[in-house]
């Protein structure tokens, strides 16, 4: 409670101040004529110490690789119990059967196929990427969990949580777009009662966009679970959701 009040005090103290950011590109700050911008480490006025934590993120991400972080740790921080953290996160997802993982990891160790392909197979097996499976993968392949997580979270095609009972994917390719896919997507959203891509409140259907399926002749196309429906119309979209509901006994 005291902590919340303290934080609130900071928030309130900032309220009367003007924002420090400007809405580029509508508003622009006047820069000196020959300004190229300079990066420097910000010094905290209260402690007179650098605010940099030497997290090395800037070093990793600099596109032209001109940043080098050279640091010594001057604080004596208590070590975080990583094992306990991992256990807690694992517990959130309940029991995951690791046996479907066996052939995937064996195949990977044998042929050395890339991590993207392995994660794809894990998702095919589980419907998403369970943390337990990723930990096991990391343990057996020697690839760090952070790298696996980095690759998995890079694109929206990997799911880190279980999906709904059905997945409806609307093709977002240009051909389907020109043939009326946006109208179909809108109709699906209306029929499912959701505003944007996502899962219905009852966990019945996940609506998502999918990259061009390459079935460009009979556009627009919609994939329901593994079946591709071609030449879709808004009307057929309504009917499709109805069929799914009937098949499932959901009204």
């Amino acid at each position: 409670m005291l902590g919340i009040l303290k934080a609130l005090r900071t928030t309130v103290s900032h309220l009367p101040r003007k924002p420090l950011t400007v809405q580029y590109p509508e508003v622009r700050e006047e820069l000196p004529e020959r300004s190229r911008g300079l990066f420097k480490v910000v010094v905290d006025v209260t402690t007179e110490e650098a605010r940099c934590r030497a997290c090395t993120l800037c070093e990793t991400n600099c596109p032209v690789q001109v940043i080098r972080v050279d640091y010594r740790n001057k604080y004596d921080l208590p070590a975080v119990d990583q094992a306990a953290l991992a256990r807690d996160r694992l517990a959130e997802q309940g029991a995951v059967d690791l046996s479907p993982l066996r052939p995937i990891i064996d195949g990977h160790l044998e042929s050395g196929t890339g991590l993207n392909a392995v994660l794809q197979r894990v998702q095919d097996a589980y419907g998403y990427l369970p943390r337990a499976a990723l930990q096991q993968l990391s343990l057996e392949t020697g690839t760090s969990l952070s790298q696996i997580y980095g690759t998995a979270s890079f694109s929206d095609r990997f799911r880190l949580a279980p999906p709904a009972a059905h997945i409806i994917s609307v093709c977002r390719g240009t051909t389907c777009y020109a043939a009326g896919a946006p109208l179909v997507a809108q109709a699906l959203r209306e029929a499912l009662g959701i505003d944007a891509d996502g899962t219905t409140a009852d966990g019945f259907v996940t609506l998502q966009s999918v990259d061009c399926l390459g079935v460009c002749g009979p556009a627009p196309v919609v994939r329901v679970d593994d079946r591709v429906h071609v030449a879709m119309t808004p009307e057929r979209a309504h009917a499709l959701v109805q069929e799914l509901r009937v098949a499932e006994g959901v009204t």
Binding site: T113, A117, R157
Partner: peptide, 9 residues
């Protein structure tokens, strides 16, 4: 030759 099957990027 090995195959690397991934989602499109």
């Amino acid at each position: 030759i090995e195959i690397d099957a991934a989602e499109r990027m």
